[in-house]
Amino acid sequence: MKVILLTRVDFLKQLSEGRLLQVYLFLGEERLFHEELLKSAVNKILPPEDQPFNFMRIDAGEIGLSEFIQNLETPPFWGGARLIYLDNLESGVSGIEETVLKGIGNIADGVYVIISALKLDGRKKIHQELQKRLNVVDCSKLGKADLPVWIKQRAEKMGIQFTTAQIVKITQRLGSDLLRIRIEFEKLKTFLGERTQVNDGDLDCLIPGAPEPDIFGLIDAVADRNPRLGLPRLEDLLNSGENEIKILATISRQFRNITAACEGRRQGLNPKLLASMLGINPYVAEKSFVQSGRFTLPELSEIMERLVMADYRMKTGQREPRLELELAVVEICTGKH
């Protein structure tokens, strides 16, 4: 089956021209694209005063099937429009895909539905049918050749000018983490003030060349349940001279942030409020929000218990620290914690 994908530009054009379709599927592993397209849709469809009542964000792993159908069939409060965002479809409760297909035929007038999935299994008939019946928007990660173009366009949109050589430096120092790049550009914009042209001194000051150990890369691998990626990244951290207990403490701290973000999403908080409440860097808060979409609270509770056990075993000498850290990462990745 050949799936016809809308580009992000296609979706934004439909949105700006008032031609929004009733149901979309955001599909792809670049979470930043999901979040930015959703924000554009919310702000276009709903006036600020209506958003608390007519915007609903639902985790597919926690919603009841009958409750979801009921939400689709409920018209907007006080007229106007209503937007339902079903997140984490690939981690949804049993039967959610069939319920989506059943429900999209009975959506109330004025209700728009956006479904988000990082990836679907194209071999499954139900996933084939979803991609056939829904309007799929491509949210795939950027290819290596596309990253410099995205950086240049995002910088120009923010009023920042980079040379070609500086863009190369940014890709070397920040990699392909678009969320981190966006946060660093926001810091750079504040630093520049009225200036638009970045000089090499500005870049070296705010985006230094010595990379931090890739703890977020390790967390991403763990969140994706990918031990083949997680273990090499753990090895990189260890080989860079990082102490096992320090790495474990960093992983535990980030999973505490992810847990707080998961609970915060349920309460309607945004990353800025979370950063203020926890006293953490805005980049860490945004990253935690993105990563929290990959877990349920019960899963996070089990992971935290496994990390506490690892800390105890390492500090009491019950197991060699490197081995215990590797085992903890593998068990969390494979869901055997």
Rank of each mutant, 00 (worst) to 15 (best):
residue 2 K to W: 09
residue 12 L to R: 12
residue 13 K to F: 12
residue 19 R to K: 15
residue 20 L to R: 09
residue 24 Y to N: 00
residue 28 G to Y: 01
residue 31 R to G: 07
residue 31 R to P: 01
residue 34 H to M: 10
residue 34 H to L: 05
residue 35 E to D: 14
residue 35 E to K: 05
residue 37 L to Q: 03
residue 46 L to E: 03
residue 46 L to Y: 05
residue 50 D to W: 02
residue 53 F to I: 12
residue 69 I to R: 04
residue 70 Q to N: 13
residue 72 L to C: 09
residue 73 E to K: 12
residue 74 T to I: 08
residue 76 P to Y: 14
residue 76 P to R: 13
residue 78 W to P: 06
residue 79 G to E: 10
residue 80 G to R: 06
residue 83 L to Y: 02
residue 83 L to W: 04
residue 86 L to N: 04
residue 87 D to V: 13
residue 88 N to T: 14
residue 88 N to L: 13
residue 92 G to W: 05
residue 94 S to Y: 11
residue 103 G to P: 04
residue 108 A to N: 08
residue 117 A to M: 05
residue 120 L to Q: 08
residue 123 R to C: 11
residue 123 R to M: 06
residue 126 I to L: 09
residue 132 K to G: 12
residue 134 L to Q: 04
residue 134 L to T: 05
residue 134 L to C: 08
residue 137 V to D: 01
residue 138 D to M: 11
residue 138 D to L: 09
residue 139 C to I: 11
residue 142 L to H: 10
residue 149 V to F: 09
residue 151 I to D: 01
residue 152 K to R: 15
residue 152 K to Y: 08
residue 155 A to G: 04
residue 156 E to K: 11
residue 157 K to H: 11
residue 161 Q to R: 14
residue 164 T to V: 10
residue 165 A to I: 03
residue 166 Q to S: 06
residue 170 I to T: 01
residue 170 I to D: 00
residue 172 Q to I: 07
residue 172 Q to V: 08
residue 175 G to K: 03
residue 178 L to C: 13
residue 183 I to E: 14
residue 185 F to C: 02
residue 185 F to N: 00
residue 195 R to F: 06
residue 197 Q to P: 00
residue 202 D to L: 07
residue 202 D to Y: 10
residue 208 P to G: 14
residue 209 G to P: 03
residue 209 G to H: 12
residue 212 E to D: 15
residue 214 D to K: 03
residue 215 I to A: 06
residue 216 F to N: 07
residue 218 L to F: 05
residue 220 D to S: 09
residue 226 N to L: 06
residue 228 R to W: 13
residue 231 L to I: 15
residue 234 L to V: 03
residue 235 E to G: 13
residue 240 S to F: 10
residue 242 E to H: 07
residue 246 K to W: 11
residue 248 L to V: 06
residue 272 K to Y: 13
residue 277 M to R: 15
residue 279 G to V: 09
residue 282 P to I: 10
residue 283 Y to G: 09
residue 286 E to P: 01
residue 287 K to E: 08
residue 298 P to A: 13
residue 300 L to E: 03
residue 307 L to N: 02
residue 313 R to W: 05
residue 314 M to A: 06
residue 321 P to I: 07
residue 321 P to R: 03
residue 327 L to N: 04
residue 328 A to P: 01
residue 328 A to I: 03
residue 334 T to Y: 09
residue 335 G to R: 04
